[in-house]
Amino acid sequence: MIARYIGIAVLLFLPMPIIIVVLSSFTSAGYLSFPIKGLSLRWYAEFLGSADWLRVLGTSALLALIGAVVSTGACFAAAWAVVRHKIRFGATYETILLAPLIFPHAAIGVIMIVTLSSLGWLGTFSGLVLVHCILTIPYAYRPVAAALRKSDAALEEAAASLGARPWRTFWMVTLPAVRPGLVTSLLFTFIISFDEVTVTLFLVGPFVMTLPVQVFSEVLESASPIIAAVSAALVLFTSAMVFILDRVIGIQFFVERD
């Protein structure tokens, strides 16, 4: 009974600050306040009219796209070796791939500074790509490995015994079977990378900046409602991704254990 009251309160509490940010973006005042003073879309106009904000948005989208493709590809290959080739110490390797999850973000930030500065990639786009690939590995591995485990290797053997060449078997039999897992991994890692801020803020520089880090530094320095408009755009983007994820694999994917 108590669980029910706490549960309902918490479920209403979780989206509340997000809804308030979105509502406050429609203010016509020059400073941020809630409840808002007068309705207007001026901060959206300012956001979409600003070359700086749009460039940062483009950087974040490209970064997340490359990161999602690379880490999904790397994890699909690894999962193939672990699940299909049944390599020795496969379970141990899976644990190692999850390693970035058990380190505090502030420490990962400094680890990445050390790594990128030794490569001469600090403050570059290539450096951000490398770091985002590493950070998204644990999120990519689970869905692709689960999909491979569920798909039936016997079907591939049947296709091969009927004379299909390995690549044809892969395209016609394997890929359709694991496609939901791959799409889930791509979307999930795209969101994680697009929203990442704690590690990335150590690695940006005068020549490269991501959207969440830009929002973060603007909040520290000013109280302009344009931040609320940019945040609302981020929220809209996340809603779209959650909607697609729900369609592709179902939202219960996030609370399933394998």
């Binding site: 600050p17 940010v21 996340t238 959650v242 939202i251």
Partner: peptide, 22 residues
């Protein structure tokens, strides 16, 4: 589930900023 997963996937910058507004 949506009420849990959706806020979880919104950037922590946006959610922390929400508390600044509140």
């Amino acid at each position: 589930l949506l009420l849990i997963i959706f806020p979880w996937l919104v950037s922590i910058v946006v959610r922390s900023y929400g508390w600044v507004v509140i």
